[in-house]
Design a protein around this nucleic acid. Structure first.
Length: 566
RNA sequence: GUUCCCGUACCUCAGCAGGACAGAGGAUCCGCCUCCUAAGCGGACUGCCGCGCGUUCGAAUCGCGCCGGGAACGCCA
């Protein structure tokens, strides 16, 4: 395998710069006409006291060609290198095959552990589209880091603690019914919660009772505990169904309540280090030196806060998993909170505080404004998935009514469309939810990727086991712009997987998959694969095979399945 | 008020550790299924890359200042 063209090219440029410097300046060209790699000569102008155009010409004349670098041209101050394109093609395709379906995998993460805190459902609250981003992004990062050899710990930091559960108990005892709750699930719990908030203003006693019940949960009162566990089970039963459909998995379900009895030591440690001061009756860490408001750790009534719990959780996770990195896939609204508690841990002397990363993403809102659980103004994720699956089913009935496993394929396509909607663009962008967009299966969408993959499979199925053919594929048949473009994009996949991990940005993979699919569909139209010329056919089949393999793998990293046919 | 994020075509976005003419998709209009799946392909249309100044041989990309939008800012999570 020969894949380091940049390095080779750098060694061939006779300029007054180190090989490493030269290598860092070499770029891939945007257009085949400019070759495959280019070296801009502008920076050399000063050192060499010549114009970039002259430099390019001089350097071009000095480059020694070989079997890898077949042509050099000096154009507009650039030194354009043409590599042996058949060799390039062969290298990339054989790489894909050698990976046996796991192209892009690597061992760069071997021996390292990454914790990913994502999805983090709230007990008693419906799972709505506002939770899609954290779930889809976190899950994709889980799969991406796993592919890179990391030991990954997926953590669902359950929202299972807080005064709202006192409210829930009051509401449930007043208006609720166990059978109804079993049957209706979270929707019923949600209804009770909303009703509580409607009644509360006119009935202050409710607030008092809620507070009392919450205190009973904390003290471990059997009745309170039992009810709380019931709510938790009802919620998780429902959410698990969604996780199963979305291919989402967790290794830990230790939520907020798990850290209830684990905050005292960290707090004492912070006090011992002199970080905590008293302010307006509360205990805080003053961060004014760092341009931040104080981090509140203990309320004036002595109870803990969000940050207290997160600090305890971070310390616990470090001890339990000894992570090299701990990611928090949480909306950017909480930017300050993360900056604050990361800083507190840093001040406490934990050098691993630098390994805590807030993977922030944008807000999801509805066309008529923000969602509100209390107001009941939400779009349930289940409804979105169901609609997408139904839409996929309709399209199948219309276009491919004899398709085997229609329901399964509809599920894969519908679920894929929903997941992809959260993974297609940079995570920081706000999203205004629109059924029109999620249910659009044309263009840059996951159904398009799946469809392209199915097209590949269709060709492969039609010809049968081409690898058993006695006729060897003739790579000279692959010397055309469409194939070159496609193959180069496939070759970019492993780096894209690494970039996606380094930047915590699954959309880097989504974007490349779209490019690959577009390039393939172009290839598909222009270059007929199945033909009487078996040498040509077998060469092209390898391209098709590799394309299918990469698309399938890329989709899998995003948590999306690729049906064989659709 | 302070801090952070965003601002590229009618819409949604890519490009941003500076490089060769700014790219996709959606929408709209036109064309392509006796030929490997038309969930496809091709074409047309659409741009002071928010504005200004600066750094540079070169800026959508870096810096500063504005403007516009969003978020956060002490006892919720």
């Amino acid at each position: 395998m020969f894949n380091n063209y940049k390095q080779l090219i750098a060694s061939k440029i006779k300029a007054p710069l180190s090989t490493a410097e030269l290598e860092s300046l070499i770029t891939e060209t945007a257009d085949d006409a400019f070759g495959d790699y280019a070296f801009p000569c502008f920076k050399l102008a000063r050192v060499m006291r010549m114009s970039p155009v002259q430099i390019a010409q001089k350097l071009a004349a000095e480059v020694e060609l070989d079997e890898h670098i077949v042509k050099v041209e000096a154009v507009n101050g650039y030194l354009n290198f043409f590599v042996n394109r058949l060799e390039l093609t062969w290298d990339i395709i054989s790489d894909v095959f050698a990976a046996r379906g796991l192209y892009g995998n690597s061992d760069i993460g071997a021996g390292k552990t990454v914790c990913i805190d994502y999805s983090s459902v709230n007990i008693c609250k419906s799972f709505h589209i506002g939770h899609l981003s954290t779930t889809a992004i976190g899950s994709a990062l889980y799969k991406i880091y796993t592919a890179l050899g990391y030991n990954v710990v997926g953590i669902n930091h359950l929202g299972d603690y807080g005064t709202q559960f006192g409210k829930m108990i009051v509401a449930f005892k007043l208006w609720g019914d166990r059978e109804v709750a079993e049957r209706e699930g979270v929707a019923e719990l949600q209804r009770l919660y909303v009703k509580f908030h409607q009644e509360e203003p006119s009935n202050p006693q409710l607030t008092e009772q809620a507070r009392a019940w919450f205190a009973r949960i904390e003290k471990g009162d059997p009745e309170a505990q039992e009810l709380f566990e019931f709510f938790k089970r009802v919620t998780l039963d429902e959410v698990m169904k969604i996780y199963r459909r979305l291919n989402v998995k967790f290794d830990s379900w230790n939520g907020e309540s798990f850290f209830n009895d684990k905050m005292d030591k960290p707090l004492q440690m912070l006090r011992d280090k002199g970080l905590i001061t008293e302010s307006q009756g509360a205990q805080i860490v003053d961060l004014s030196e760092y341009g931040m408001p104080p981090c509140l750790l203990v309320k004036s009534d002595g109870s803990s806060l969000y940050a207290t719990r997160d600090i305890a959780a971070a310390i616990w996770r470090k001890r339990e998993y000894d992570f090299d990195k701990c990611l928090y896939v949480v909306a950017y609204q909480q930017n300050l909170h993360f900056k604050q508690f990361f800083k507190v841990l840093e001040l406490a002397g934990f050098d691993w505080a630098k390994d805590l990363v807030h993977v922030a993403f944008g807000m999801v809102s509805l066309e008529d404004g923000a969602m509100s659980t209390r107001k009941g103004n939400v779009v349930l994720l289940k409804d979105v998935i169901d609609k997408a699956v139904a839409k996929a089913g309709e399209i199948i009935a219309d276009k491919n009514p004899n398709l085997p496993n229609r329901d399964k394929v509809a599920e894969q396509v519908g679920v894929g469309a929903v997941l992809f909607s959260a993974l297609e663009s940079s995570r920081i962008k706000d999203i205004v939810f629109s059924y029109d967009r999620v249910l659009n299966f044309d263009g840059e969408t996951s159904p398009y990727l799946q469809y392209t993959c199915a097209r590949c499979n269709s060709i492969l199925e039609k010809v049968g086991d081409y690898k058993a053919s006695k006729v060897v594929g003739d790579y000279r048949a692959l010397d055309d712009p469409e194939t070159l473009r496609l193959v180069k994009l496939i070759g970019a996949f492993p780096q894209a997987v690494q970039d996606a991990a380094a930047k915590y940005e699954p959309s880097i993979i989504s974007a490349l998959l779209i490019d690959i699919a577009q390039a393939f569909n172009r290839f598909y139209i222009v270059r007929r694969v199945i033909s009487d010329n078996l040498a040509e056919q077998n060469a092209r089949l390898q391209v098709v095979d590799a394309t299918a393999s990469v698309l399938k793998r890329g989709l899998a990293l995003l948590g999306i399945e690729a049906p064989d046919k659709m």
